[in-house]
Design a protein around this nucleic acid. Structure first.
Lengths: 227, 227
DNA sequence: GTGATAGGCTACTCTTGAGTAGTTTTTATC
DNA sequence: GATAAAAACTACTCAAGAGTAGCCTATCAC
């Protein structure tokens, strides 16, 4: 891991480096590097076509090296798949602290998650496409996490309904469709593509809110009076 | 192909059976059977994990049999991937004949395509997940078809805008998000799942129209006046 | 019944990639 | 600078599956 090792000093100043030994954070760093390389490769070629030898080569390392940081290929995939959902869930934790109305929190949640999906593009695509290659245990865990995410979006919506900010009947069931719209970002936005990152986020947030019968500022949308 | 052969008589009465030899339609039928089996397997296990030996076994046939109807595994995948888009495009052709306003045609298109996605569930999932395993030529063809689909949905939207039925600025660019919502059906609806087929279609059509600023009957949605 | 042919099968080859056993190099410590 | 331990590498094994060469058999024309 010639190059990775050379890059390690950057971590010295990172938090969590206790006075005695920075081993844990170095290990975490190496794992992250492996995941980034694997994720890029799997994103480009697909799970089966992306071999561990290729991952190793990209890092200027050898295959057995990878096996000291992950038990097997499946565990690498699982770790990649977790990133998006995990980060989204902690974003929801953060958002819960946002002051204002439930609408403010809902919109903040949408923006935050859209942002994560845009930033973690490759990880999310791999999650969507390759989840099924996970072994039973990892798959279950991922499904639970995803379910929790939908549930919490649903709760944010319900809070809006209770405050009278949303009028749509059965609005909470829209959470899965909002999840779909958010996931679809990966098909619309590609890093280096012609679409603008912020514009995509704004579009998806606006579309999600309209699905809930709200405009971008949280005003209720109602059928226009015929004249 | 013991079982398939036994089932062939059903085809005798099918259209296209010229007076001399029903060979072409028999071949088409066998190809379809192969695709159905392969699609189910790939849907369940993923492209790489689904082996041709398994496909053959499911049909009570052997692997070389498959090779007389398809050049290789990739061609089978390509044929599966095409189904959803191709059928959707011909649905759009049909819909163009629908009398009434542009809104009627747009809604009809959404319903038809949603219906296809629900019916061809497995094919569509495979398309979404495994497209990247296609060789360059097949991939290009598929992308073009998909692009055409988005374009034509965009045109249906534009027609509504021109007739003054939609007020949303840049409404045509919503076509990709509608495509996303339609694709998401595959995550929401599973044959045999607890969700009702018609309800799902209604939900997705309603959500799509709300994204365009319309209610289910095509009435414009406008911000409610503050009191 | 005999011969020709399409349709299908048996029994391979050959490649590729996951995972590992055992060895070498680097680093840290005295 | 000797020594121990950690980190990484070399050089495999082993399994699995895509694709194929060549054989077998049912069917049909005559």
């Amino acid at each position: 891991m010639t190059r990775a090792t050379a890059a390690i000093p950057a971590i010295k100043s990172s938090p969590g480096g206790g006075r005695r030994g920075m081993k844990p954070s170095v290990v975490a760093y190496k794992r992250e590097r492996i995941l980034a390389a694997a994720s890029a490769l799997i994103h480009a070629k697909g799970y089966e076509a992306a071999t561990l030898d290729m991952v190793a080569e990209q890092l200027h390392v050898t295959k057995p090296f990878l096996y000291t940081y992950f038990r097997n290929k499946g565990d690498i995939l699982a770790a990649i798949c977790e990133v998006g959902v995990t980060e989204s869930l902690s974003a929801l934790d953060r958002v819960a602290q946002v002051p204002g109305t439930s609408f403010d929190r809902l919109r903040a949640a949408l923006v935050e998650v859209a942002d994560i999906i845009v930033h973690r593009h490759e990880y999310v695509v791999v999650y969507q496409r390759e989840m099924m290659n996970l072994d039973r245990a990892n798959a279950q865990r991922l499904i639970r996490l995803r379910h929790e995410f939908d549930l919490r979006i649903g709760k944010l919506i319900e809070a809006c309904v209770e405050e009278g900010l949303i009028a749509l009947p059965d609005a909470a069931s829209m959470s899965v469709w909002i999840g779909g719209l958010l996931s679809w970002i990966t098909y619309i936005y590609r890093p280096g593509g012609r679409r603008n990152r912020e514009a995509v986020i704004q579009e998806v947030v606006g579309a999600s809110l309209r699905m809930l019968g709200l405009d971008a500022d949280g005003r209720l949308l109602v059928p226009q009076q015929r004249d």
